[in-house]
């Protein structure tokens, strides 16, 4: 049995109500935890081969996001940053959402990221990450309602917890675009 010590929950937002999510970290926002009555935005600037996993329950107003680096955790080890791994992050983030009042059947997912920055033959990190998270979400029966994955450029992603909309901009583009399902 894996022993999991969860680390890496970001709770504080900056004065504009934005939460910057570093690698291997996650954030949960529920309606009771509004800071100064502002709905925080969770954001990652410079998302490369990593995946931003966004989960939310719009009926109960709970949302979460994690910044995943690797497809699979290694067995039988203590893990300090479970949200580094796609398989653990999906499970734990769903659990956290439920702990904060979400209903499992209402949870929907949006995935962003998984690009291939350096054009190396053996560089499959982004593709592997994307496949791993999709497989995991399918196994957990969570519906992916939107995605923006692959390609060869970095992305910036902003998740507005007010209306559960996700905005993505690739490094080359100058404007953010909303992900639609």
């Amino acid at each position: 049995m894996k022993k999991i010590k969860p680390h890496g929950c970001i709770e504080k937002s900056d004065k504009n109500g934005e939460i910057f999510l570093p690698m291997g970290h996650y954030a949960i926002i529920n309606c009771k935890k509004r800071i100064n009555n502002v709905d925080p935005k969770i954001s990652i600037y410079g998302l490369g081969s990593c995946i931003a996993l966004i989960l939310f329950d719009n009926k109960n107003n709970v949302s979460g996001m994690s910044h995943i680096l690797l497809p699979k955790s290694r067995q039988n080890k203590t893990i300090n940053f479970p949200h580094k791994y796609a398989d653990l992050s999906a499970k734990l983030l769903i659990q956290e959402l439920i702990n904060h009042g979400a209903m499992r059947k209402n949870i929907k997912a949006i995935i962003v990221g998984g690009s291939k920055i350096f054009d190396l033959d053996e560089n499959f990190m982004g593709i592997n990450n994307t496949e791993a998270i999709k497989k995991e979400l399918e196994k957990l029966e969570i519906k992916i309602i939107g995605e923006n994955t692959g390609g060869s450029e970095g992305r910036a992603v902003i998740f507005d917890t007010k209306d559960f909309s996700v905005y993505v901009k690739s490094t080359r583009e100058s404007n953010f675009k909303k992900i639609t399902s």
């Binding site: 998302l47 690797l70 920055i117 450029e153 490094t171």
Partner: peptide, 14 residues
């Protein structure tokens, strides 16, 4: 690659 430093480093860090 031309990209943000964060994106450049992510794959390598992973």
């Amino acid at each position: 690659a031309i990209d943000t430093v964060n994106a450049i480093l992510e794959g390598i860090i992973a």
